Computed example of a mutant assay.
Amino acid sequence: MDLEEYRRQARDWLAANVPGAPAEGSAAEDGVATAREFMARLYDAGYSGITWPAEWGGQGLTQAEDRAFAAEAARVSLPIYVFSIGLGMCGPTLVDLGTPEQKARHIRRLLRGEEIWCQLFSEPGAGSDVAALQTRAVPADDGGWIVNGQKVWTSVAQHADYGLLLARTDVEVPKHKGLTMLIVDMHAPGVTVRPLKDMTGRAHFNEIFFDDVHIAPGSVVGEVNGGWSSAVTTLLHERLSISSGVGMSGPRDNPASLDALREVVDVQDPLVRDQLVELHIRSRALALFNAKLSQETKAGIFPGARGSAAKLLLAELTNFQADLAVSLAGPQALAYEPGGGGLAGAIALAPAMSLGGGTNEIMRNIIGDRVLNLPPEPRADKNVPFKDLKVGTQS
């Protein structure tokens, strides 16, 4: 099919099928039901997993079709927030590292909205230093695993069916070498999910407790005790996913956008317009950088630590947007809406981008070490067995 015809058909389909409510990011159960129904229609129409391998349930098309659909989808608000972790992080990790059985079982169901996924890495004592995590997985008699521990800052966990869990499986080796990635059933006995409210008043994140949770055989993603390598793959997809689409999307994503500020500032003022042009330039530059990384990834060129650069730029852009919104809107920026919406809600949420997916400080360390080839920071724990470290609550 001609690319322009493909794009026209996508535009027509979106116009006929994108619901007006609930808004993206809704945590209400009716919002989840709407998202599931929409994902099924999206998949059946051929617009979910456009570049994912056809043998596992994707559409098997090219980056050109993916970009064409993304350009049209950016004009509307797709109700797929609860699938963002699965589509952007967990699913791509399974495509890269999953066994044939894992791919056959999960990928098509994920793309059709039949499964919601979350990512279970961070812990109260292991945030930026993920490799210091203490959640333990020990072998079970049936060849599976028994897991005990806690995770935190987990998005969409309250709705998730499955999660990618990073757990410690060997304490006799240095911290990076004793980790294993496992697929965990979020409905299994012993899994407890508790929402965490942030300063917007909404529960964007959750904490999860694992109490003797049984994980079935065949759930290891990658290699036993090779979980750090698996985690790096997931984190690469995470950083590309978090930063992708910036500058391509509509006003809903931008707290300093024209639509958000039109009623409280004079957008005809040349000084105001200059500031908004600066915002557009920064957003567009990041969008093009992400497009380049995405194209390289699809072509088999590993972006590596440059994904961390994209994520850092997004965090800085988000805070620039929030600062600009406050500067332009003045007192109106404090007009808080129930449920954490509105301009004040977007401003309050902005600092989270400097934390989620890796802090700005960690991103700068990665860029300095792996992109600029600067000398790494000293690491006293590099060759020390984990059981001998004093990390988090371990002493």
Rank of each mutant, 00 (worst) to 15 (best):
E5G: 10
R8G: 06
N17Q: 12
A33T: 07
F38L: 02
M39I: 02
A40P: 01
G46D: 04
T51Q: 07
Q59E: 14
L61W: 12
Q63T: 12
S77F: 00
Y81Q: 10
Y81W: 07
F83K: 04
S84T: 13
I85H: 06
G88V: 07
L94K: 08
L94V: 09
L94C: 02
L110Y: 05
A132C: 11
D141I: 04
D142N: 10
V147W: 00
W153A: 09
W153P: 00
G163F: 04
L164V: 03
L165T: 10
A167W: 09
P174D: 13
G190H: 01
L196Y: 01
D198L: 07
D198T: 12
D198K: 04
A203F: 06
F205T: 12
D211C: 00
P217M: 12
G250P: 01
N254G: 03
N254S: 08
S257W: 02
L258G: 06
L261D: 02
V264G: 03
Q268H: 15
I281E: 10
S294A: 15
T297R: 15
A299I: 04
R306V: 03
N319A: 00
P331V: 05
Q332V: 05
P338M: 02
G341A: 12
L349N: 11
A350Y: 05
P351S: 07
V371I: 15
L372Q: 09
L372H: 12
L374P: 09
P376S: 15
F386Y: 15
L389E: 05
